[in-house]
Design a protein around this nucleic acid. Structure first.
Lengths: 156, 156
DNA sequence: GTTGAAAAGTGCTGCGA
DNA sequence: TCGCAGCACTTTTCAAC
């Protein structure tokens, strides 16, 4: 009905609801209602509004990759032979499940990727066989993350 | 009681439960139970086990930063004057809410950060005032993400 | 370890203010 | 627009297999 996708006017209440649920999406509406001193129904209405406005994209279970054997996180600066090969490269990189993030960036690299691997062998395999096999990729630079010191969402 | 934090043995069932909930944490246990042809109680037991083992770190509401006015995502290669200043720098960068990810990396940079800003003015302010103000930071290189082509969790 | 059902708590929907 | 109350659903627990 209403095409108000651009029209994002969040008041204090909306913002506070998001802040709480962004940290722990399992907190029940009733508890949020108590904290913010409104009724549970109000929380529900606000959440529905924000879902309709596509502000809320979903809810993810956060797991610790290291605990299930994925020990290495690395960033990849990717140089393409030609910038025009970007779209094809994206499609091919999507097929590599170890690539969890990919950005088209300004600066020295054409693209920038984040990858998660089990161990150094796995990383070498992904870099040498999978990534280098993608058409259009000239060369890559690897930054291995030895420690993830901060990992959070934006604060509202 | 049991100190089995290292002992991660996930069977097929555990893995399938995680896969489903990592994409959408709102799916009820009863529905997962139907899909995997086990009882709801079993799902509950497995989830509790994985929470106790700290494999599951929590659940986040995923919002679209662009819809609430955070339009710019950038990566920052950070050079420290001395590597030993790492710990102090982390503490100070934690105070900058725009920094959503920070890694201690190998390669040319000492550290690597991901930041989310409202617009170019906001980015300039964060770079010039906040980041450059952190003691020990010599200089930074900025990669602005023009498009986030892939954003997902690891597939199990 | 798994099941099935009962008990407790949560989410959803109208009506009223 | 918000709050309250009833119903449907889910989560949680537990005895039994």
């Amino acid at each position: 009905m209403e095409n108000r996708s651009q029209n994002f006017e969040l008041d204090n209440l909306d913002t506070q609801i998001l802040s709480i649920l962004m940290e722990d999406a399992t907190i029940p509406y009733t508890e949020i209602a108590k904290k913010l001193i409104v009724s549970g129904g109000t929380i529900h209405v606000r959440m529905k509004k924000m879902q309709d406005m596509n502000i809320i994209k979903g809810s993810h279970l956060i797991i610790d990759p290291q605990r299930i054997g994925y020990d290495i996180c690395a960033f990849l600066g990717i140089y393409l032979e030609k910038g025009s090969q970007y779209k094809d490269a994206v499609e091919n990189l999507k097929k590599i499940k170890e690539v969890v993030e990919l950005h088209y960036t300004t600066g020295s690299y054409s693209m920038f990727a984040k990858i998660i691997c089990r161990d150094t062998n796995h990383l070498r395999q992904v870099l040498n066989e999978d990534i280098q096999g993608v058409k259009g990729i000239q060369r890559t630079e690897t930054l291995i993350s030895l420690e993830e010191s901060i990992k959070r969402q934006i604060t509202l």
